[in-house]
Design a protein around this nucleic acid. Sequence first.
DNA 1: AAGTAGCGGATATGGCGCAGTTCCATCGTT
DNA 2: AACGATGGAACTGCGCCATATCCGCTACTT
Lengths: 296, 296
Amino acid sequence: MELRHIRYFLAVAREGNFTRAAARIGIGQPPLSQQIRDLENEIGTALFHRVPHGAELTEAGTAFLEVVAPFPDLAERAIRAAQRAGRGEVGSIRVGFTASAAFSPSVPRVFRDFRRSYPGVEMTLEEANSAQLVAGLRDERLDAVFLRQDTIAGDGIRLHVISSEPMVLVLPSGHPAAQREKVALSELRDEALILTPRAVGPTHYDKVVSACRDSGFEPQMGQIAPQLGSVINFVAAELGFSLVPKPMTQLQAKGVAYREIEGEVPIAQLSLAYRSNDISTALRNFVSRTLAAHQS
Amino acid sequence: MELRHIRYFLAVAREGNFTRAAARIGIGQPPLSQQIRDLENEIGTALFHRVPHGAELTEAGTAFLEVVAPFPDLAERAIRAAQRAGRGEVGSIRVGFTASAAFSPSVPRVFRDFRRSYPGVEMTLEEANSAQLVAGLRDERLDAVFLRQDTIAGDGIRLHVISSEPMVLVLPSGHPAAQREKVALSELRDEALILTPRAVGPTHYDKVVSACRDSGFEPQMGQIAPQLGSVINFVAAELGFSLVPKPMTQLQAKGVAYREIEGEVPIAQLSLAYRSNDISTALRNFVSRTLAAHQS
DNA sequence: AAGTAGCGGATATGGCGCAGTTCCATCGTT
DNA sequence: AACGATGGAACTGCGCCATATCCGCTACTT
């Protein structure tokens, strides 16, 4: 028995007449009659009573109909499911990001845009620090991550720098320097520098320290902030100053002022890193769209 | 797409290897490869990754598998359902019977035997008097009935007499005649005769009245019993006597004695009547087995 | 009542396309 | 170099469909 037989059977069952069923299917009445006869021979019982005005289902035909009626739709559904999967319209991807990456407007936009374009793909988001994200890629717990570093080591892992943003100073709002729109880094040579631990974000850490050194002074290490939000809070508490990527200025807090840097401005890169071995179609789509969104 | 494609796909998915799958199916590896290729072309996406040691499902292949995996079983189930229906192993029949017919041991045996042989057939049983049963056949509310009459009028209704049973006397156990094993009907010429109304069972009524007349007396009509059980109760109350088919002796009651009739014994026929137009296979089986059971 | 037309299913025949066989090439692994 | 696995090419036989026609039944007309 083939799906062809089932399609022919269903057509006759619906029309109650071989001639009309044949016309609907697009073949002649004699081959349709023969195909139904072949099916009845294979099953071993008649599916139709032939009557002068057409054909009526037998009890066997009724029982058969009840089971095979869904077949054409199921077949179509199988094809559609395969096509959607082949286009990456279903599946799942696990995406990580650092806190500061999330403040880049393009990152939430990429999430929003991808979700809208591929509603059938289950996208899981996870915030973590850079070290954790890299470990997650290596351990295959994450498929792609947004982070602020411009190189990554690891087999089967690719990284693309997708944007660069200038850093800005974060000062207590009562600080004398905060009265001006631009502040030279060297003015803060006597202030404590607040940073997250190097181990959680080495690239950012090194860039900030280098920027201070390039301005002619060795930074005085201040309070260690466990995470980015803490940096802002400590500055608000007048424990010192810091440097953050410009999009962080969205994080407003009482007692905190953001100021552009006078002179050479350190740059923070935003990168997309992802697993490139056995990449799923959904992930490939995600990466393509992310890179495309950052090309102009 | 045909079931053949699905069967071939499932074989490769299970074996992970075209060569072994082909061997399992019973065709060569090249035509299997071509058939899968045709399927992939029709769907428009690859279902397998070809790798050096065989083939692995793609995401599209996995999605396709999830939908089509049940197809072979469903196809088999459809064939089986049609075959069972064709053999009358499923369906429903509605059978009626009179109270006295139910006392014939063969009637419950037919019910028991049919239920065991065709567990998939839903058999509904209904007790009613003869007139109601005949009306039920005519109205197509019943498919077959056991009743005590030897003719029936009605288009599309057939009747077979399946057994004959002698009638016996039902007497109050204190009655002088009850002291003997055999009693002549004429001994009861002065006693009241208890019967069910003629309208509910004309054949039985007429036979009993004829038997009395053949014994030389006109019966004195006694209490009218609404149903058969009432007849026994009235006799126990010493309101008179009656005649019933011999199997009724199973209905024992205090104050009641059954006695064989001396002389000519009236006979009660048990018949099966059924609808014969558009007879279902299940009903045909029921009738066949009932007639076969009563042939020896 | 008989004859005819129309409708519908089934049989017979022929042809084309498809599925399977056979042989062999290519690639990757051992 | 040998082996295992997939896929291409040539060939053959079978199956599905088209076409012609027959048969049975019903309805209509004479």
